[in-house]
Nucleic acid binder design. Sequence first.
DNA 1: CCTGAAATTATACGCTTGCATAATTACGCA
DNA 2: TGCGTAATTATGCAAGCGTATAATTTCAGG
Lengths: 214, 214
Amino acid sequence: MPSSRRSFSREQPEQRKEALIEATLKLMAETGPAGATVRAIAETAGMSQGMIRHYFSSKEDLIVAAYERHMHALTEATEAQASQAGSAEDRLRNFIVASLTPPVVDARAMALWAGFIHMVRRDQAMQDTHERTYYHFRDRLEVLIAAARREAGCAATPATNRRHAIACNAVIDGLWLEGGALPEAFADSELAEIGLTSVAAITGLEFHERKGAP
Amino acid sequence: MPSSRRSFSREQPEQRKEALIEATLKLMAETGPAGATVRAIAETAGMSQGMIRHYFSSKEDLIVAAYERHMHALTEATEAQASQAGSAEDRLRNFIVASLTPPVVDARAMALWAGFIHMVRRDQAMQDTHERTYYHFRDRLEVLIAAARREAGCAATPATNRRHAIACNAVIDGLWLEGGALPEAFADSELAEIGLTSVAAITGLEFHERKGAP
DNA sequence: CCTGAAATTATACGCTTGCATAATTACGCA
DNA sequence: TGCGTAATTATGCAAGCGTATAATTTCAGG
């Protein structure tokens, strides 16, 4: 018998789920997938382990929700930069820079992503999220590239735009990966600079100096 | 008491280690890191579980060896193509194509890589392997690019070659990743073609038609 | 102020894990 | 041919896993 049972208060379901998802991401990032046990997650979230099965049908279900949350956060961080007002060139530039700058480029974010990947192949829901996220990013890039080329007076065919988007997406993904995997290997803004230069070379676009830039 | 103890024969230590490493990679790829338990590994390798600690100081030690083996295999597969005789342009082309074609581009290889990644941050030996592999690939690419530009009569500064190598490495890594993560998303030789086009755009090189090519 | 039901905690269960150790087997060498 | 020993198998162990369920607490509504 316990000497004293911990006190608690009833919280909103959304808050509880939120706390569990946050705790899952924290543990997955810091101690790897193996460290994200139901006991550790519940403790990190400040509640008892029964809550996981009370709010999610299984631990697996919570993992899927955490994966969706993580990918959504990465998407949002870049999306915000690309939907601001400005020229098409500016929006494309901002999109690329945001993708290659913290907090998107981050050892934690990248380890988290890798930790999820192996589950993607075995869980249909996770695979759907994976595909959706990938195509969403690439399509966004394609639209931005197409707009920038139209703006520059050198509009390309859809097929060309698609290939450019695939290639630019690959450069960005690769730089993102390497920035996360070897943080010390690159100077502060080096990744973003290389990303812009590469996208310019691939698409034939030019990123002009902006007002205020040296 | 067992009705009958399984028979066995004494094998070379190297054969046993080899079999254990192979089994580890197979399981890590097929069932994820969580599936690579000492019992499953031993069974897959066709021996009893005690052998793991007889030939490796711990399961962790075996994992490190398996990671080294996997990265070495990936490196070798591309290296072989780049060290053949031929013009610098041909060697660079072969290097890129090999990196973006099976068996290097492969869902299994990529899942395996991702499964290891989270351990890299916590194990110094694995981190060393990780860094060594990355820089080895990138340096190889830098040398090939520099040679191709020299051959084409447009030699560049070391700093330029470095940036080109980083960018080309990123394209290749990104395409490799996507080819492994979404195998159905790309046609057979699409990744290699996009890789070559992108490297050409980034470096200013040209990959000429080869004899026998359509 | 009660009371009922939902929320939350605590605990128990069956399995699996990595590792340690005991029991047995195979094989080189006298 | 038999012996000793290293190689190999089998078994035991404590800890941790995800899940199920019982016990308790909170809180809204009469």
